[in-house]
Design a protein around this nucleic acid. Structure first.
Length: 270
DNA sequence: TGCCAGGCTGATA
DNA sequence: TATCAGCCTGGC
């Protein structure tokens, strides 16, 4: 167990921001987080954050994962003070971080996300991890499941994926996994691409459109210029930015602003 | 009962 | 090129 003082970090806001579907609320202010084949418990009181891992594991993995090397004050300071809506949204969501998650995990997760609710996306991801992922144990004996590799999902049947409640998205996950395995799209290549190239490359995968591609770039490649527009964001833009969102002003950090807006729209009174 | 949820594909004009 | 139905399924 290690303890850190961290500003502009809220594990509960990150949980509700809808970018990670492998976080479980264990108790008030205490969350279990699974990423790739790792697991950590995070508990928070104010700026005091406890991680149930060694200092080495924190530095090697979780510090980057939670984007804790970044000072989010610089993003918050860029917000137009005349823009009351975004200023309020950012103030309320100022503990959100853009996580640095695994590319393959984000591809599958956001394929599943379409026409779906956050609660159901969580269940679907949990189902495929439990059915196809490897069972792991923490040093304390806590059991969790690693995210299944492309090879495993490529060899699954559409029926097996449907049994995980993926519905019509099953064929998207299956064909995308097969495209990765047969080399049509290289995950390593995507990781080294610019945002525009990565976005275009991901669009080659069956079931991935503009919105899903932007989400993957934002949450896996940390392309902060990505600005995924879903139904919530579209409604917010129509209401608060009838003349268009000022992308120029927030060039290169639109993704952070998108998260503040998304959080505000989903949790307007929390 | 019907609509909608963090969209996308494929058919049609 | 643009438009639109159809798709899984659970919650309201």
């Amino acid at each position: 167990m290690i303890v850190k003082e961290i500003k502009n970090f809220s594990i509960s806001q990150i949980d509700r921001s809808g970018q990670c579907f492998r976080m479980v609320k264990l108790d008030e202010g205490i969350y279990g987080v699974t990423a790739a084949d790792r697991y950590v418990q995070v508990s928070q009181e104010g700026t005091r954050v406890c991680f149930s891992c060694t200092e080495q594991e924190y530095k090697e993995f979780w510090q980057q994962y939670f984007d804790l090397d970044t000072d989010y004050e610089t993003y918050l300071a860029q917000i137009d003070p005349q823009d009351k809506y975004l200023s309020d949204a950012a103030r309320r969501g100022s503990g959100i971080r853009i996580l640095r998650q695994d590319l393959w995990e984000m591809i599958v997760t956001f394929l599943i996300s379409q026409q779906n609710t956050i609660a159901r996306i969580r269940r679907c991801v949990q189902n495929i991890c439990e059915k196809f992922g490897e069972e792991c144990f923490t040093p304390d004996g806590i059991s969790y499941y690693a995210f299944p590799k492309p090879q495993v999902l490529a060899n699954a049947s559409e029926e097996e994926l449907r049994a995980c409640n993926l519905g019509y998205r099953s064929k998207y996950v299956l064909r995308t996994a097969q495209s990765i395995i047969n080399g049509e799209v290289s995950l390593d290549a995507v990781r080294s691409m610019t945002y525009d190239d990565a976005r275009a490359e991901l669009l080659k995968l069956y079931g991935i459109g503009e919105k899903v591609s932007a989400c993957i770039c934002l949450f896996a490649l940390h392309s902060l210029e990505a600005f995924p527009v879903d139904t919530h964001i579209r409604q917010a833009l129509e209401k608060h930015y009838p003349n268009g969102f000022p992308h120029e002003r927030y060039s290169g950090v639109q993704g952070v602003m998108q998260q503040y807006i998304f959080y505000q729209e989903l949790f307007p009174e929390v």
